[in-house]
Nucleic acid binder design. Structure first.
Length: 470
RNA sequence: GGCGGCAUGGCCAAGUGGUAAGGCAGAGGAUUGCAAAUCCUUUACCCCCAGUUCGAAUCUGGGUGCCGCCUCCA
């Protein structure tokens, strides 16, 4: 079986066939860098990271491009608020983006173009559209004429005639007045006083949001790419407009496959900055949730479905990850050539990236291994011997291999600088003395005190006590 | 109003015609001074109604509830 993906264009699951055998070009809509990334971004980029890892694992040479939108009203607003500049806000948030993605073990894109560095490509594209009569200028702005593009609406299933009379939510503005059609959108926005602007044939100004992506896709990957990625909230208008611009200019299909991830919800509502119900990636990770827990949490659901973010679900993922992590902490092994479990894993992933089913394979692989790992942790030498058996070695290597495809990697126990090993050992001995004297109150006090410092005691048969940092 | 999607055990979540994966929680057991941790075992007929079928969670029709997009948004 080969990879099948849900293509938003057809709203169906389609077999994946690359333009060039063995190669895949991917463009992923990136972030507007006016603030820190939240869990919605994490979910999206984890999903696409897994797609990319799976394609690579399957033998494809993947070229992955992701953009930064570094000029936008929100960035300018933010800069004005804090009395800094557009560049300062962008740079800071790009740095934060890279740091957050790195923590989540998301592979960096092969190239990460920025809107402000792609101005030539943007201006060229707008000129072409203008020459083809698909764009018109009005008072320093340039708009795309949706009525001039026959395929408009093909991605989002929108009918211009039907939508026209309902403009609910649309705000009447000067900009609206300049448009020929309510769905027309700005390719170039004339400069406003005090805002950064760039020269163009239409005067000083800056690019509209949608044209940036069209230009960057083309510049980095060409007229037609294999896969275009993004959040479900980008289907309309962003991706619809992107298609219209690119296809009107080149006359070629922009992307063969459009994949969209579901939203992260909080209390049944979409997590978003405008609703203010968001948790940033770093706030969550800094609160003690491990990056791999977050990864597991998102991968337990299918990427297209909404994912409700709750403390309970996260807690469940944390406990689940603990088991996988224990098994992944083991070393050694040689993966078998063929394996029924590897085939099950691949079959699940081929089925529109069914990571939930793929994870079931990992849990199955990990089950006996984590038992061994935990026994070894507790000083059981026979477990060490069992682990050496070929069957376990193969299972371990396979677990490592498949986990890597999902970007799941072993997390070492968090080092606790607070207590030295010797100090902990001394406390354990004090507790043992108390136990020997049947002074259980003191013994419990010592145990609780250690636990409060992240040291967990494990009583073993024979009156011995091990400890681990929890 | 238009377009799209979802509804599976206490929670999360796979499964798209052949009799319900997996994770968490819970229960029982082992271990422990008691715990914790760990190990073993274990728990569902799929929102409602009607229909198609030998057979449906899975297909069709209707209903109910929820969500996303239509305005910046992963």
């Amino acid at each position: 079986m080969s990879l099948r993906l849900t293509n938003t264009l057809s709203r169906r699951v389609e077999e994946f066939r690359p333009i060039e055998p063995g190669k895949v070009s991917i463009y992923c809509c990136g972030v507007t860098v006016y603030d820190l990334c939240h869990l919605g971004h994490a979910r999206s980029y984890i999903a696409w990271d897994v797609l990319r890892r799976y394609l690579s694992w399957s033998g494809y040479a993947v070229t992955f491009v992701q953009n930064y939108t570094d000029i936008d009203d929100k960035i300018l607003n933010r800069a004005a608020e804090e009395g800094s500049s557009m560049e300062a806000v962008s740079e800071r948030n790009i740095e934060a983006f890279v740091a957050d993605m790195t923590r989540l073990n998301i592979l960096p894109a092969d190239r990460m173009p920025r809107a402000t560095r792609s101005l030539d490509a943007i201006r060229t594209l707008i000129s072409e559209l203008e020459a083809k009569g698909a764009a018109y200028s009005a008072d320093g702005d340039v708009y795309f004429a949706v009525m001039k593009h026959a395929g408009y609406g093909k991605l989002s299933g929108r009918d211009l005639e039907q939508q026209q009379d309902n403009a609910g939510g649309r705000v009447a503005s000067e900009e609206e007045a300049r448009k020929h059609h309510p769905f027309d959108f700005a390719l170039w926005k004339g400069a406003k006083p005090g805002e950064p602007s760039f020269p163009s044939p239409w005067g000083q100004g800056r690019p509209g949001w949608h044209i940036e992506c069209s230009a960057m896709v083309r510049e980095e990957l060409g007229d037609t790419i294999d896969i275009h990625l993004g959040g479900a909230d980008l289907v309309f208008p962003h991706h619809e407009n992107e298609i219209a611009q690119s296809e009107a200019a080149t006359g070629k299909e922009l992307a063969h496959y459009w994949l969209h991830n579901g939203m992260v919800n909080v209390g049944g509502q979409k997590m978003s900055k405008s609703l203010g119900n968001f948790t940033t990636i770093r706030a969550l990770l800094d609160s003690g949730v491990s990056p791999m827990t977050l990864r597991l949490f998102t991968l337990q659901a299918h990427y297209r479905k909404p994912l409700d973010f709750t403390a309970e679900a996260l807690e469940a993922a944390a406990t689940g990850w603990k088991g996988l992590n224990a098994a992944l902490g083991l070393t050694g092994g040689v993966a078998p050539e063929r394996s029924e479990l590897r085939e099950r894993f691949a079959a699940a992933m081929d089925d529109d990236l069914n990571t939930s089913a793929a994870l079931a394979v990992l849990f199955e692989l990990a089950k006996p291994l984590r038992a061994l790992a935990n026994r070894i942790e507790r000083g059981d030498e026979s477990a060490r011997v069992e682990l050496e058996q070929p069957e376990n070695q193969q299972q371990l290597a396979l677990l490592q291999e498949l986990s890597a495809v999902l970007g799941l990697q072993h997390e070492a126990q968090v080092a606790d600088a607070g207590l030295s090993d010797a100090a902990i050992q001394a406390e354990i001995e004090a507790r043992q003395a108390a136990k020997a004297a049947k002074d259980f109150a003191s013994a419990d006090r010592i145990r609780d005190a250690l636990k409060a410092q992240g040291i967990e005691l494990i009583d073993k048969p024979g009156g011995l006590t091990d400890w681990i940092r929890s």
